[in-house]
Design a protein around this nucleic acid. Sequence first.
RNA 1: GCGGAAGUAGCUCAUUUGGUAGAGCGAAAGCCUUCCAAGCUUUAGGUGGCGGGUUCGAGCCCCGUCUUCCGCUCCA
Length: 507
Amino acid sequence: MAQNEDVFKKIISHAKEYGFVFQSSEIYDGLSAVYDYAQNGVELKNNIKQYWWKSMVQMHENIVGIDSAIFMHPTIWKASGHVDAFNDPLIDNKDSKKRYRADVLIEEYLEKQNDKIEKEVEKAAKRFGDAFDRQQFVSTNARVLEYRAKIDTVHTRFVKAMETSDLAEVKKIIEDCEIVCPVSGSRNWTEVRQFNLMFSTQMGSVSEDASTLYLRPETAQGIFVNYLNVQKTGRMKIPFGIAQTGKAFRNEIVARQFIFRMREFEQMEMQFFVRPGTEMEWFEYWKKTRLDWHLALGIPVEKYRYHPHDKLAHYANAACDIEFEFAFGFKELEGIHSRTDFDLSQHQKFSGKKLQYFDPELNENYVPYVIETSIGLDRTFLTVLSHAYCEEKLEDGSERVVMRIPGILAPIKCAVLPLVAKDGLPEKAREILSILMPDFMCQYEEKDSIGKRYRRHDAIGTPYCVTIDHQTLQDNMVTIRHRDTMEQHRIPVEKIAETLRDAIRLN
RNA sequence: GCGGAAGUAGCUCAUUUGGUAGAGCGAAAGCCUUCCAAGCUUUAGGUGGCGGGUUCGAGCCCCGUCUUCCGCUCCA
């Protein structure tokens, strides 16, 4: 494990040194858990996205894509359950290190005060026997009145604080009531924090009538709310899918492990709409299909595993993750969820619009069930990077770092290199470059020895280097050098494009 | 979020008890011309993460803050 972490650190610094990933706002000391993709990283990321899009949309006649906006109607997040599920004020006890819901602590305190009143009532009832008048007792007894007044004051403050989201006041109530931690018994509390994983912002420039919008915490809802539009205008027949890639935002309390858990990240999702009752078949189908997609990248099957969920989310009746073995263990890379008709039904309810499908075979209307495949683009990027990174010992004893990125994903497909920067070789090289450029991401380099240039391209995963020498000027043949094997042979200039095309084809 | 550690050039790291920062690699320009990083010359690049304090004097000591890493916690 320690060795793995070592390699992981090397991958992170390699990613920076060779222009894959930079920390966001680095010259301002950085922004926690936010990263930028650099010149090579953006190519790799775009290639992964395109590879996913082609295998999901282009290769399936019953799947289409959309690109919905990040801003959506705020009610969507009420319907989806995001607003309610994540709005708790939390507080930690510094001594026991336990975390509590601040509102629950206060409610428990109020209950205890009520219990005290009840005890007084019981005692008095025993004392007075049959003559006891509860109503009269509670409205006149000094102690009870004192408790009652306290409860009322705290309750009023509490309700107001919760309504206005005044967290400092919530903390103050806990302090004023001298509430202690049930575990440590101490009153050493942290500040109260709102645990809401959605980022919010304002729409409308005048603050009084501005409305609160959320940055979407998942891309899925953009598909659900467009379900009917796409189904009608695309004349889609069930079963069919809608795919989308895009940014999502989560205000994670702890976001770490490089680009594995970021506050701003990109998802690649596909929601597959099926006839109710057939969802488990499709669930199994997509589990297999998606794993095959990962394996097609050439990463060995041992690096992956299924992780079925025991505890299901409120919307699901089956869920399974595809996990990848990162340096820090097996972690979720993609989720396959059977979301039932939860989302569409919720949107029906909240929007008042029917989101149904008329199935001509069954001759009936129903709300479709949904199988979701949701993969993290940044995590896939990290997977590719982790698996590609290789420190290799060569026969002559020297070492090289080579990124064995699958050709279809490599940032640069081909480096065009004149053997020496004179005798007309640069001119010839640029001539070849201009032929390749429209179809392939290429890079021209003439600085430094040829060996050094090969190694530089190994380090960013360029699968092919084409070298132009004096002989080329005579016979129009170049040396093509393969990244992984380091083998080289001569091919005619006209064959370069063909070779590259074979190497980066979608299988 | 809590606890621990760290932050010096693009990278890896020096700078013995506090006395105003160096190297290697890398980069750029030029020379050389050689199919697997290794030749020569020159140049650029650091208000020592940032802010404050102690001191005649702080990269070094103290406080705060930001970021990263490790552990815990959390995680539709």
